[in-house]
C-alpha cells in the first residue's frame, strides 16, 4: 500500500454499509438530514464542515467539503477564514489548558 489515503476511495464510503447495513442506513440518513437547509443555509453548513474537517484532519472531508463550499457559492477567502476559526479554537483549547498548568505549578511552588 503506497499510501493510506486515496482520492478514489472517497466514493466507496457507502461500502461501509456492507457489514452493518442498518447502522449505516441510520448514519447516512442522519448525515444527509444534517446538511439540509434549516436555520443555517447549506452554504453555512458546508463552511462549518470544512472547518471541522481541518480540525479532525480528514483528507476525505477536506476534499469533499472544499468542493461542496465552492459549489454552494463560497469563495476561497471565506473558506480560509473558516479554517482560521477552527485553528483559533483548536489552538485556544491547548492554550487555555495553561490554566491547569499554572494551577498545578502554583500549588507546588513557594
Amino acid at each position: 500500500m503506497e499510501t493510506y489515503y486515496k482520492p478514489e476511495d472517497l466514493p466507496k464510503f457507502e461500502e461501509i454499509g456492507k457489514e452493518a447495513p442498518e447502522l449505516a442506513r441510520k448514519f447516512f440518513d442522519y448525515y444527509n438530514a444534517v446538511f439540509v437547509e434549516g436555520e443555517l443555509t447549506e452554504r453555512e453548513k458546508a463552511l462549518i464542515a470544512l472547518a471541522v474537517a481541518h480540525a479532525v484532519q480528514c483528507p476525505y472531508c477536506i476534499d469533499a467539503y472544499t468542493q461542496a463550499c465552492l459549489e454552494k457559492g463560497s469563495n476561497l477567502a471565506e473558506m480560509t477564514e473558516a479554517v482560521h476559526v477552527v485553528t483559533a479554537i483548536r489552538g485556544g483549547a491547548s492554550l487555555v489548558h495553561g490554566v491547569q498548568m499554572r494551577n498545578i505549578a502554583n500549588k507546588l511552588s513557594m
Binding site: 443555509t41 447549506e42 452554504r43 468542493q67 465552492l70 459549489e71 454552494k72 457559492g73
Partner: peptide
Amino acid sequence: NPTGAFLPPNQEKT
C-alpha cells in the same frame, strides 16, 4: 459562472 472546475450554486439562493 463558477470560477473553476465545479458546478454553480443554487441560482435562487445565490
